[in-house]
Design a protein around this nucleic acid. Structure first.
Length: 120
DNA sequence: CGGGTGACTTTAC
DNA sequence: CGTAAAGCCACCC
């Protein structure tokens, strides 16, 4: 039966999927003050370099968790794509500006503040 | 298993 | 500048 197969595939290994979250959390938590990084860089550090989407998805679980600087994670263009998931759409930019992040229009100055996570 | 969705990225027009 | 499409992986139903 195919259904039996599905169980094995969907389940994978309970520990494995948590590892994905742990990596994202760890990296984001390591972003230094006044720096930012991109979904792509994090995805690459985790090993899912082709799926920056998963980083944002994992970050969704951080909503309400003030101990994680999710406002320092932006997209490849420096735009605050995740701002709409914050309590207020302006909060993300305000937090970054408060840390000394330089903005160019609606995007941050990647060249100046981009921080690349260590690839473990 | 299969279809839908998403805080992304890249290429193409 | 803009929109479209494909690729990507994990979650949910």
């Amino acid at each position: 039966m195919a259904s039996e197969n599905k169980k094995n595939l969907a389940k994978k290994t309970d520990s494995q999927k948590e590892d994905f979250f742990q990596k994202v959390f760890k990296i984001v938590a390591e972003i230094p003050y006044g720096k930012i990084t991109t979904y792509g860089e994090i995805a690459q550090a985790i090993g899912l370099k082709s799926s920056a989407r998963m980083v944002g998805w994992a970050l969704n679980s951080t909503i309400g968790d003030s101990s994680l600087p999710c406002h320092r994670v932006i997209n490849r263009n420096g735009e605050l794509t995740g701002k709409r998931h914050f309590r207020t759409p302006t909060l993300m930019r305000e937090m970054l500006e408060n840390e000394g992040i330089e903005f160019i229009g609606e995007a941050v100055n990647l060249k100046k503040h981009l921080w690349k996570p260590p690839i473990d």
